[in-house]
């Protein structure tokens, strides 16, 4: 099957290893990975900032770029949520695109959801080991019902010990531009997340969304915690972690 990879703008720029890990996972599942070269952003920043017109332009761009694939897979709950749950409303006044948005939404999967519910992957080639906690990112959890999928995938890793942290479903305080516009509040919320994480005593925090990842990792380091890794689940499932990929 032809699987379009929407790698997301943040992965592309900040953490390419996640994209490479996603490719590796999809190829392992015998998917033909299609990467439309012109992809940029799903339009969520504009949508959440109230700039509907720009968001519509970007949504139309994404729709046209993924017109001939069987599935679209996204290593991010929030970009996945944007396409799956918001495009239709966003394009509701453009009837032609509204239908296309519905079509795309039905084919779009967050990565872990795809691995569990479409290809049912249960073995992984990874060297990663250690105790981890999982942070449920807001959009993945509350827009796409991503909760059991990552846990199921992680349960297949023999050397990974998943410990549930307190407040795993609590927002990390990122919220896109919220993190800079209301930095004081955002900072307090992510501090509490770090407190909960550190109390869990794990080697790594694993999650499925780049915004939360940059926010939590950035806060941990600023607090002087250089020990707890913050990893995307695709990195854990493949062992492709950060720098080692290049």
């Amino acid at each position: 099957m032809r699987v379009g990879l929407f790698v997301t703008c943040v992965v592309d720029l900040m953490r390419p290893s996640i994209g490479l890990a996603a490719v590796k996972l999809l190829e392992r599942a015998d998917c033909e990975v299609i990467f439309p070269e012109n992809q940029t952003c799903c339009g969520q920043p504009a949508y959440n900032a109230g700039d509907r017109l720009t968001a519509q332009q970007l949504a139309r761009k994404v729709i046209s770029e993924f017109a001939d694939v069987d599935y679209v897979v996204i290593p991010s709950g929030s970009c996945g949520g944007m396409i799956k749950t918001h495009y239709e409303e966003l394009l509701s006044d453009l009837p032609e695109y509204r239908v296309k948005a519905q079509w795309l939404a039905a084919r779009t999967y967050e990565l872990t959801d795809f691995l569990v519910n479409v290809v049912d992957m249960d073995s992984f080639d990874t060297t990663f080991q250690g105790a981890i906690a999982y942070h449920d990112s807001c959009a993945g959890l509350r827009e796409l019902n991503i909760k059991e999928q990552p846990r199921k995938l992680l349960s297949h890793l023999a050397h990974v010990d998943l410990k549930e942290m307190a407040g795993a479903e609590q927002c990390c305080g990122f919220g896109g531009t919220f993190s800079v516009k209301y930095g004081d509040i955002s900072s307090r919320i992510v501090d509490l997340k770090c407190d909960d994480l550190e109390a869990t005593e794990v080697d790594a925090l694993v999650l499925g969304d780049l915004g939360c990842m940059l926010n939590i990792e950035g806060k941990l380091r600023r607090r002087g915690n250089h020990k707890t890794k913050v990893l995307h689940i695709a990195e854990v499932l493949t062992g492709l972690v950060g720098e080692e990929t290049e």
Partner: peptide, 16 residues
């Protein structure tokens, strides 16, 4: 309020 984990030097697009 927090550090920014640095980009890794190359974009995904570039590598892939």
């Amino acid at each position: 309020h927090r550090d920014l984990p640095a980009p890794r030097g190359r974009t995904f697009r570039d590598i892939y």
